[in-house]
Amino acid sequence: MTLTLEIIGITVLWFFLFGYVIVASIDFGSGFFNAYSLLTNRQHILTKIIQRYLSPVWEVTNVFLVFFFVGIIGFFPKTAFYYGTTLLVPASIAIILLAIRGSYYAFETYGSRGHKGYSFMYGVAGLLIPASLSVVLTISEGGFIDMIDGQPVLDYQELFLSPLTWSIVVLAISATLYISAVFLTWYANKAKDGEATKLLRKYALIWSLPTMITATGIIVELRAHNPEHYANILDVWWAFLISGLLFIGTVYLLWTKRSYGFAFLLLVGQFFVAFFAYGWSHRPYLLYPYLTIYDSFTNEAMAIALIIAFIAGLGLLLPSLYLLLRLFLFNKEYVVGKKEDNHA
């Protein structure tokens, strides 16, 4: 296996998608917990913690996603034809949810602090986004797109009746809440907010189970749905084993109320290993059985230009991201709430 431009391209994109999965999960999960606590009159426990984290970073989250889809069209322009044509409805739903979530978040945060309607709107929209986006992963497994007169057409009935679809939807939602809850447990603990830590730890433990069960279930379902992919997954069984062990590590630390920071680190490791093992086994297909990273790849000149632009861009971004994290996430005084950093 040589390091071709195709592999470099898809790896870069996969990294950003992973980044999106983690950051967006924290984001969407927080929004949901916030809305839930408003609804059950427990906002005094959670809202402050959640908003301290969310406020300065919300816009950055969205860019990870934009980066991924712009990048995939750039590196693999044929995806525009297959996915562009078939995803009109599911992707439009996701866009609408993203739009409501993003703008109502801003409306609530900067316009009318504590507005219940707005909080509820973005909390629920946020939770539905992972569900609607996850459909793309389902479709990529093949079996839902027919070629009619040379045009790809999505078979909605097949898609809606497939257990695979719904397992992936459930995984997307529960993983979102799980990732978010583990992160916030650590964050609340860092902010020395005992009550919030306690509640979030409970949420984390609750959502750990469905996450693991559906993840395992999906692999089993793939055996019937896409035997080729299933066989490739078995080839990297050890990676999924490592991921499972990391999961157990996280839950153990949460259970015994120890080192929440390390627990979150293990969680990131768990998802990282599983995400890349999944991607690796999916290779070379972008869409079973029509599209591979090789036959959809752009020309060499564009690929090299994109990679150079990417490296230059990272040179700019990494220091800025570091600054952002240092000022807010890793700033003790900010996290604890000593700094009165009200927006504008």
Binding site: V60, G74, A309, L324, K339, H343
Partner: peptide
């Protein structure tokens, strides 16, 4: 695709510093 790709970086850059700017009026 190149300028489209570069636009996301420009936007990324803007988003990060806008977040910082808004929350550091009194820092």
């Amino acid at each position: 695709a190149l300028p489209l790709f570069m636009e996301t970086f420009a936007f990324f850059f803007e988003a990060i510093f806008l977040g910082i700017y808004l929350y550091t009026w009194d820092r």
